[in-house]
Design a binder for these strands. Structure first.
Length: 317
DNA sequence: AAACACACCAACCGCACAAAT
DNA sequence: AATTTGTGCGGTTGGTGTGTT
């Protein structure tokens, strides 16, 4: 038995192995994965065969194709709705696998975490990061939806039924019903709402810069060129007076114990909590954490960070 | 040019669940 | 009813390419 175990092949797949696997599926359909090994066709576990088929060999996969803006939007929306149910989310995105979605989300989370880490008040480069955070604003260079007519239809009828409205009608994605909490209302902001531990000098510099040069403005959204719902939510959070407390121990006596910061709706609302990343995590039983500087950015949409634009350097102010 | 950091992706692992025995 | 087997899912890891310093 030990000897047989050693025969199991792992690692990258060879073209010949793919060919064998494809032939097997042609003959028997995408099932009986274990028989592939038992028949001696491949030295791979059934599990490995299935994974290879599902993630790489299945027809109509969008391999090597970056997530479009619309796809990102759908993932963000559905992750908020379903939590880390990647397989379920993937059914809304023909050509994408659960692994694709998972990887996309993971990369996004890492990026946000890194940005957040850099933004820690104690960081020596915090001024720059603070400015980056403060400076994020709308840039009308949103990637056009890349749904194309050649985008093959998913072979799975399940996917067909669930996703057709998103795939065949990108507008349907754009107009997906949004969570109640998304009430974009912020397209201007006030430095006094950002107490990111700017010292007086930094703050003065900032205020001065605002008066002297045009600080990146957040214009009114134009039709067809809008922040994602998550971005809009973020923007609305930035007007929340409690937002700034995330970044320091600024007082908010009405919150009581400062160690258990609350963000106010929609963050703590038990009903809507399941529509946020934190809520999703709570659904999974992985956490039920209060919002902290290390969780706050979890919900940040991808386009916010993609669209951060640096402020001019102080010498240009 | 080299070193490093980061992003992306493929694949594995462990667990859960359902069907088969 | 208990056990085994097959399948699916989510989390994680390691490799590779690319950008930055």
């Amino acid at each position: 038995m030990e000897a047989k175990k050693e025969e199991i092949r792992k690692g990258p797949w060879k073209a010949e192995e793919d060919e064998v696997l494809i032939n097997h599926v042609k003959k028997y359909g995408p099932r009986d994965w274990s028989s592939i090994r038992s028949k001696g066709l491949l030295q791979r576990t059934g599990k490995s065969c299935r994974l290879r088929w599902v993630n790489k060999l299945r027809p109509n996969l969008k391999n090597g194709c970056k997530f479009s803006t619309e796809e990102e939007r759908v993932v963000i929306e559905l992750q908020a709705q379903f939590g880390n149910k990647w397989a379920k989310i993937a059914t809304y995105l023909p050509g994408r696998t659960d692994n694709d979605v998972k990887n996309f989300w993971s990369s996004r989370q890492k990026r946000l975490a890194r940005i957040l880490h850099s933004a820690a008040p104690s960081s020596s480069k915090s001024l720059k990061v603070k400015r980056d955070i403060l400076a994020f604003h709308y840039v009308p260079s949103v990637e056009a939806p890349t749904f194309s007519s050649s985008m093959e239809e998913e072979s799975s009828s399940k996917v067909q039924s669930c996703s057709s409205s998103y795939v065949e009608n990108p507008e349907a994605v754009r107009t997906m019903p949004l969570p109640e909490m998304v009430k974009p209302d912020l397209f201007s902001f006030d430095i006094n709402h950002f107490q990111l531990e700017l010292n007086p000098t930094e703050k003065d510099m900032f205020i001065e810069s605002q008066s002297q040069v045009s600080f990146p403005q957040i214009p009114q959204p134009q039709s067809g060129l809008e922040f994602s719902p998550e971005s809009q939510e973020l923007l609305s959070r930035l007007q929340d007076p409690y937002f700034l407390d995330m970044f320091g121990q600024a007082h908010a006596p009405e919150l009581g114990n400062g160690s258990q910061l609350s963000l106010g709706p929609p963050f703590y609302d038990p009903v809507v909590s399941c529509t946020s990343a934190a809520g999703a995590a709570a659904m999974d039983g992985s956490s039920n954490h209060p919002a902290t500087p290390f969780t706050f950015f979890d919900d940040f949409p991808v386009d916010v960070f993609d669209q951060i634009e640096k402020l001019p350097c102080p010498s240009d102010w």
